[in-house]
Amino acid sequence: MTLALAAPRSTGTLAWRRLLRPGTVVPILVILIALAWALFPGLFAAGSPTEQAGAALQAPSAAHLFGTDATGRDLFTRVVHGASHSITGAVVAVVVGLVVGTALGVTAGAVGGAVEEILMRLVDVLLAIPALLLSLSVVILLGFGTTNAAIAVGVTSIAVFARLARSQVVSVRSAEFVEAAYGSGGTFLGVLWRHILPNSLTPVIALAALQLGSAILQISTLGFLGYGAPPPTPEWGLLIAEGRSYVATAWWLTVLPGAVVAVVVLATNRLSQAIGGAGRREETA
């Protein structure tokens, strides 16, 4: 009787099952609210983010939860509508880095040899360039705007995804169940799809959650520096930049949008830790 080595259950499935824990419910709720703001801003703030809603520089109150800015626009409305620019741009950036970087990393790790050497040396070149400098260079080449800023931020994360994906594939590729799959007649693409990828991508998914927060920060930084969406677009980084001249007299113009950015980024970081931690626990189980 021939004994076959079966592949262990994918860590991804149990990782997702373990996400709904007491320490992750609040971060998930924060992310869901932010996504709802981005997708349906009118449900949370019915007013216009670019039109005057009251007197200028009103402090936070029941009528204006985040106060008003220097032209009388409701700041809460602008923050809610700004999510559609900042978060959507961050999602685009993560998708660019995830798709391109994972494809490069999986190809390098699965094929090996000269292909791996060439691809990983290109990745090393990207890693040698500071992320902000690289994103600024790409924005200058493509032009200003949220979409171009998102693509620029995505380019800076390609190398990180590629290195992680490559290391995971190389680790799983040498496992006994993969060798058994080849021994039982499995093809290269079949083994890659059925055995290597499901047991390699949980850390990559965790990195994607982490990069979402990083992308929000980077896009906000580009907006703060004036390389993102132009005024009067309610992009989060631009909102903080517009309020910096009023820090002493209208603190809410910078503190409240900045607090929203910080809370969303912290929530994505906590979710990333939960996904990665669940995968590591399953691997050692």
Results as ranks from 00 to 15, higher is better:
Met1Leu: 13
Met1Gly: 13
Thr2Gln: 15
Thr2Phe: 14
Thr2Asp: 13
Leu5Trp: 05
Arg9Gly: 07
Ser10Pro: 05
Gly12Asp: 12
Thr13Ala: 10
Arg17Ser: 12
Arg18His: 12
Arg18Lys: 08
Leu19Met: 15
Leu20Phe: 14
Arg21Gln: 10
Val25Phe: 06
Ile28Met: 10
Val30Glu: 11
Ala34His: 06
Leu35Asn: 05
Leu35Gly: 03
Leu39His: 01
Gly42Trp: 15
Ala45Phe: 08
Gly47Met: 15
Ser48Asp: 11
Glu51Ser: 11
Ala55Asn: 13
Leu57Ala: 03
Ala59Leu: 10
Ala63Ile: 09
Leu65Trp: 12
Leu65His: 14
Thr68Asn: 00
Ala70Gly: 11
Arg73Phe: 02
Thr77Ala: 09
Arg78Cys: 04
Val80Thr: 06
His81Ala: 13
His81Thr: 09
Gly82Val: 06
Ala83Asn: 03
Ala83Met: 15
Ser84Gln: 14
Ala90Phe: 03
Val92Lys: 09
Gly97Cys: 14
Val99Ala: 06
Gly101Met: 02
Gly105Leu: 01
Ala108Lys: 09
Val111Lys: 04
Gly113Thr: 08
Val115Asp: 10
Met120Gly: 04
Val123Glu: 05
Asp124Tyr: 12
Asp124Ala: 14
Val125Pro: 05
Leu132Phe: 08
Leu133Ile: 15
Ser135Gly: 08
Ser137Val: 08
Leu141His: 15
Leu141Met: 11
Leu142Trp: 06
Gly143Tyr: 14
Thr146Phe: 02
Thr146Ala: 13
Thr146Cys: 03
Thr147Pro: 11
Ile158Asp: 13
Ala162Ile: 05
Arg163Tyr: 04
Leu164Cys: 08
Ala165Gly: 01
Gln168Trp: 08
Val170Trp: 06
Arg173Tyr: 13
Ser174Val: 06
Ala181Cys: 04
Gly185Asp: 07
Gly190Asn: 02
Gly190Val: 03
Val191Lys: 02
Ile196Thr: 01
Leu197Ala: 00
Pro198Thr: 02
Asn199Gly: 01
Leu207Ile: 09
Ala208Asp: 07
Ala209Lys: 00
Leu212Val: 02
Leu212Thr: 05
Ala215Val: 07
Ile216Pro: 07
Ile216Met: 10
Ile216Glu: 11
Leu217Ala: 12
Gln218Val: 13
Gly228Phe: 00
Thr233Cys: 03
Glu235His: 12
Gly237His: 06
Leu238Asp: 13
Leu239Gly: 00
Glu242Gly: 04
Gly243Pro: 06
Trp252Ile: 07
Thr254Glu: 13
Leu256Glu: 03
Gly258Cys: 05
Ala262Arg: 07
Val265Ala: 05
Leu266Glu: 01
Ala267Met: 09
Thr268Asn: 10
Thr268Lys: 04
Arg270Met: 13
Arg270Ser: 13
Leu271Thr: 06
Ser272Lys: 10
Ser272Pro: 01
Gln273His: 13
Ala274Phe: 02
Ala274Trp: 03
Ala278Gln: 08
Gly279Leu: 12
Arg280Pro: 08
Thr284Glu: 14
Thr284Gln: 15
Ala285Asn: 02
